[in-house]
Computed example of a mutant assay.
Amino acid sequence: MTKFIIRRMRQPDDFAAVAQLLNWIWSEPTTAERLKAEEDQVPPGKLDYNEKGELMGWDRPQWVAEDEFGQVVAYAIAWRAPWTDPGTLIQTNVVHPESRGNGIGRALHDTLHQWAAEVKASRLISFLRETDDRSVAFAERHGYVKERHTFESVLDLASFDGGNLYDAINEAERAGIRFVTLADEPGEASERKLYELYKVTHPDIPGYAGDFPWFEEWKKWSIGQAGVRPEWIHIAKDGDRYIGVVTLQQNEQTQAMYHEYTGVLPEYRGRRIALALKMLGVQTARACGVPYLRTHNDSMNAPMLRINRDLIGFRAEPGNYKMVCEL
């Protein structure tokens, strides 16, 4: 029988081992340095409850499993932000492939669920790779059900030929739409206009839940993220009004770019403005020598899937299931 212990994660000592574990399940690799930088931006947890007794506030306890040789072989986190749905926790549980089947995942699961019960959470959410049949089956045996399916798509830029898709940019410009980047219009006034655009368009994403962050937190976790630059944020304008955006984020290890966000105001949809913004993003990525672009879309987001897969030609990749457990 495999010997192991479950303990709280030690920071920063465990970041390197945790990064290696997360790289088994994440589409793009991370590093200890990046995990630490993100952790440093989160203040100490502060949970409370609303008038209905539902869990509110924020926290992010983390645990690891250590084998008999002192090696970290598994990791779990339960977290919520101030804008997360009342009562909800989001969790991740990963065990090194060579250590699976020894009860480690179950022990981490039980530890996390015990903490969730202690803080009176009412709902746990986990995102699992659709190809990880073993983890999906484990989750279903423990009360999780599939709520949503997120598709993943990749565009190989070395072989990409946009052809007449770039015409969407000229069409939009002839209709009076102007394209700039945040680098062209720097400063807080522009950032706040962009924030309002995100805030209006974000609830239209299928499956979106919770409140929207306030300006400072939105900036920290969107345009202020590592790998996002002002010149990689393409904005569509009608006069002085921001009406559409595409934001790109680069992974320092793979040099690939991720479509961090795409949004167009409802009254401007159906004019191929989103396509124009996407193609501006492609131009930027190719100019930077990026090998590929990656994006995710909810399975019910038909308009964006049509642009990405049917028009531009993003290649379908295995996605994720959103698994939900009502406590």
Rank of each mutant, 00 (worst) to 15 (best):
A17D: 11
M300C: 13
T247D: 13
L277A: 10
M323A: 12
Y75D: 05
P230I: 04
M56F: 02
K146F: 04
E173T: 07
H149M: 04
G313I: 02
T92V: 09
A117S: 11
I223D: 09
E147S: 14
R123G: 01
I77N: 12
N50T: 00
S153T: 12
R141G: 14
I312C: 04
A226I: 11
S27Y: 10
Y49D: 02
R60V: 12
P266F: 07
V282F: 01
L112W: 04
K146A: 13
V228H: 02
I307Y: 03
D13A: 15
D40L: 05
E317F: 14
W232V: 00
D14L: 08
E152H: 13
V154W: 13
Y49F: 06
L128D: 10
Q91F: 11
Q283G: 11
R100K: 09
S299P: 03
E231R: 10
E326F: 10
H202L: 08
P203N: 01
I5H: 10
F179W: 05
T30K: 00
D13W: 05
I6L: 14
L194M: 08
I177H: 03
T295R: 02
E216I: 08
E188D: 14
R272E: 14
D133E: 13
E217A: 10
K120M: 07
V246Y: 07
Y208G: 07
A137M: 07
D14V: 08
R8H: 15
R315M: 09
N102R: 13
A158M: 11
E54N: 12
K237L: 13
F4I: 01
L248C: 00
M257V: 09
I223R: 06
Q250T: 15
M257W: 09
G239M: 03
Q225V: 05
E68N: 13
R241F: 04
D156A: 08
T111I: 00
I223Q: 07
V154M: 12
F69A: 15
E54Y: 03
E38V: 05
R306I: 06
R271H: 14
I243A: 01
V245E: 11
V145P: 05
V72W: 10
G210F: 06
T262M: 08
P213W: 04
L47H: 02
G263C: 00
A76L: 05
L265W: 01
N170V: 13
F179K: 00
I233A: 10
R229P: 01
E173L: 06
E188S: 12
T131W: 09
P61C: 05
H96M: 06
E267V: 03
W58H: 15
A209P: 01
L55Y: 08
V64T: 10
G162N: 04
K322S: 15
T254G: 02
G313K: 03
R123D: 07
E326C: 07
K237T: 09
C325L: 14
L248I: 03
T201M: 07
A316E: 15
E51T: 06
R269Q: 14
Q253L: 15
Y258L: 15
V94L: 04
R294Q: 13
G176Q: 09
E196V: 04
H113I: 02
I312F: 11
G244Q: 01
G176D: 06
P206F: 06
F69Y: 15
G176T: 01
I77D: 10
D240R: 01
D161R: 14
R123Y: 03
F179T: 01
R100A: 08
R8D: 15
N320C: 14
L327M: 14
R34N: 12
V64G: 10
